[in-house]
Design a protein around this nucleic acid. Structure first.
Lengths: 217, 217
DNA sequence: GTCTATAAGGGGATAGAC
DNA sequence: GTCTATCCCCTTATAGAC
């Protein structure tokens, strides 16, 4: 709608990285991110091609490379952008209310993420599976710190007798593993259950039961 | 040791696929399988190159292609060969002894597989993550059938009151997910725990506790 | 059976017109 | 900003000598 001021070429808007962007640039980069997410998630870094990303984004390959220097630049920018969102559910785990409910809510949020954002899940899975070559620093920095922080919180709950004794870090690993499994191994799950079956309702029941029995005092 | 009879060029030995093989052929193909496993597991199908496999196998690329028609042939043969071994732990789940112990033993066997055969785990993970393009038939055939068979067994245990009520198929999924996680997401686990930490002892404690609390009547 | 050389094609990235 | 054309490397696979 109504945007006379965006005829000004050097935009006054700023992106996270601090580079000025016109409206059209923002739209294009958004399309590229969306296309790159689909292609990188489905094919992995090596398997993805600029042709495929350009096709998906509805633009030519040189046009795509006008907005991003290289394939690697797209991948790095994309994964950095998504990492924040990806860790949000864990960040929300806090000390308000009942500890067990908080953990079960975290499980629910993570399972919702797998259901609603399977491409994001597979993007990270692809990356980590191959040794996390592009995000080592994020994992051993931001992620490690967040896990340590939340592990301390969980350990307090154990010590206070609010939940049963449990290794907090492996508890977190198990929540990641079990919830992301439904996105990452989707092909296998549907091969076993049938293509038309929606596994998520039963998965939620199963996982909430599992962690309740594991943790309830 | 002592093998005069293998100077006979047309071997009397047979491989699974029925093709006659000389001793040297068996050694070479074994080397290729070993190299292909390393490279496909680390790089995925697209990321793997014949150069890398040939280097790892200690032979030239044309020599490698003398033994296998194509990259795809190597991958298909390898994954078919490994699938049997990969499903063995689940096949061993049977009705002798205590149900809960049988399931906990299955968890232990699967975790041992992750520890001792992480490349195999990552090979399958890569394949399934990208939609299982090469093994769809194995998943919806052999695997599906095996899961159905073992689910029935587990359901009997539930009905007989030997273990607590649980969805058998999701129980199996969760065992796969949790145990394979330690192989597939190794990079993330070591980023969080530190490169020198061996996660397996704590992982075993955690998982046995988890499934005991989940299933014990 | 194994090698060197090379064909054939895919894919990342750039040049330069518009 | 966007396009067509193109460069060049990497990768799969084959030809043909030894």
């Amino acid at each position: 709608m109504c945007c006379n001021w965006n005829s000004i070429n050097v935009s006054m808007r700023q992106e996270a990285n601090g580079k000025a962007q016109t409206r059209i640039q923002k739209e294009k980069t958004a399309k590229i991110y969306a296309a790159a997410l689909s292609v990188f998630a489905a094919q992995g870094y090596r398997g993805a091609t600029l042709d495929a990303i350009a096709l998906e984004a509805g633009m030519s390959k040189p046009n795509l490379l006008y907005y991003f220097e290289s394939k690697e630049t797209i991948h790095t920018a994309l994964i950095g952008k998504l990492m924040e969102t990806w860790l949000d559910p864990l960040r929300e785990l806090n000390d308000d209310g009942e500890p067990l409910d908080n953990i079960l809510d975290y499980v629910k949020r993570k399972l919702e993420m797998s259901r609603n954002y399977p491409r994001e899940s597979r993007l990270f899975a692809n990356e980590i599976l191959q040794g996390a070559p592009h995000i080592h620093h994020l994992l051993s920095g931001e992620l490690k710190q967040l896990v340590e922080e939340k592990s301390t919180l969980i350990q307090h709950w154990v010590t206070a007798g609010k939940i049963r004794n449990v290794d907090p870090v492996h508890l977190i690993f198990s929540i990641w593993s079990l919830t992301q499994h439904y996105a990452d191994f989707d092909a296998q799950i549907h091969a076993v259950l049938g293509a038309d079956t929606d596994p998520y309702p039963d998965a939620e029941d199963y996982l909430l039961t599992l962690f309740s029995r594991m943790l309830q005092v």
